[in-house]
Amino acid sequence: MRGVPRAPLVLALAGLIPFIWGGLTSLNGDLQDWGRQELGSRFVGPYIQLFYGSVILSFMSGVLWGFATKTSGSKAATCYVLSVLPALWAFFMTGGGPVESGINLMYGFAGLLVLDAIFAYWRLTPTWWLRLRVLLTAIVLICLAVGVYL
């Protein structure tokens, strides 16, 4: 990840831990049992992915909002509207069961990547932003797919 400052890279990669943990505990029954016993059932399998994924989509709305402050006029209004979409998506689309919610989170993260690309195209993000977001989104989607499809 050349060009990505160390602090954002390390924090972003650390932010993948709940998604990866959820995927691992979905695949390994012994690990899931241990996690359920030590951490609680909310912190294993797809459940940690769903809760944390909703939190992260909401967090990313705030990040996009911050990028929107770099512009003005009608473009700013457009950016502010676009920035709240991930949080609204998480709020309205993750209330079903774990499979439906997981699929909706996958769509939410894919949509977020589209928004990241738009904001990058408008030069509102750091130059390294989209490279980092593509990597993170790919890993998140793989982990969510494990929780949904396996």
Rank of each mutant, 00 (worst) to 15 (best):
F91H: 15
A76K: 04
V84G: 14
K70F: 13
P46Q: 11
D33T: 10
Q49T: 00
P98A: 00
W34N: 03
L50R: 12
K75M: 02
C79T: 07
S72N: 13
N104T: 15
G40D: 10
C79N: 11
F51H: 07
K75V: 06
Y52L: 02
K75T: 12
N104M: 09
D30M: 13
I17A: 12
T71I: 12
C79W: 10
G15A: 00
L88H: 15
A87T: 01
M106G: 05
G22Q: 00
Y47T: 14
K70V: 03
P46N: 14
W65A: 13
G40S: 04
L24H: 02
G45A: 06
F67M: 08
S58V: 08
A76Q: 11
S54T: 05
G45H: 07
A87E: 08
L85D: 04
L105Q: 15
T69K: 09
L57R: 02
F43V: 06
Q49S: 00
V63K: 13
S54D: 04
I103S: 01
W21C: 01
G23A: 09
L82D: 15
I20R: 00
F92I: 03
S101Y: 04
E38P: 05
V84P: 11
F67A: 11
L88N: 13
L57M: 00
E100A: 15
P46A: 10
P98D: 00
Q49G: 00
A14N: 01
L27F: 02
G35I: 06
V99Y: 03
F51L: 05
G96E: 04
S54H: 04
E100W: 09
L16I: 01
Y47M: 08
F19H: 02
T94W: 08
K70G: 15
L31H: 14
G95C: 09
G96S: 03
C79V: 09
V84Q: 15
V81S: 09
E100N: 06
W21M: 08
S54G: 09
I48K: 01
F92P: 05
R36N: 11
W89A: 05
G23Q: 01
F67W: 13
W21L: 02
L27Y: 01
S72C: 08
F92L: 08
G35D: 06
S101F: 07
K75H: 03
F59H: 11
A87P: 12
N104R: 10
F51M: 04
G102K: 05
G53S: 10
S41C: 04
A14P: 05
E100C: 14
G66D: 00
G23F: 02
V99P: 00
G23R: 01
S58W: 14
V63Y: 06
R42T: 09
Q37D: 15
N28P: 01
A87M: 15
G15L: 02
D30K: 11
F51A: 07
A90R: 13
L82F: 12
Y52P: 08
G22K: 00
S41P: 09
E38H: 06
V55T: 06
N104W: 07
A90W: 14
Y80W: 12
Q32D: 03
M106L: 03
D33F: 10
G23E: 06
T71G: 13
F92Y: 06
G22M: 01
V44F: 06
F91V: 06
L105W: 15
F43A: 14
G53W: 09
L31W: 15
I48E: 07
L24C: 05
S83N: 12
L39N: 07
S101C: 03
A90D: 14
W34T: 11
M93R: 13
G62R: 03
M93N: 11
V55Q: 07
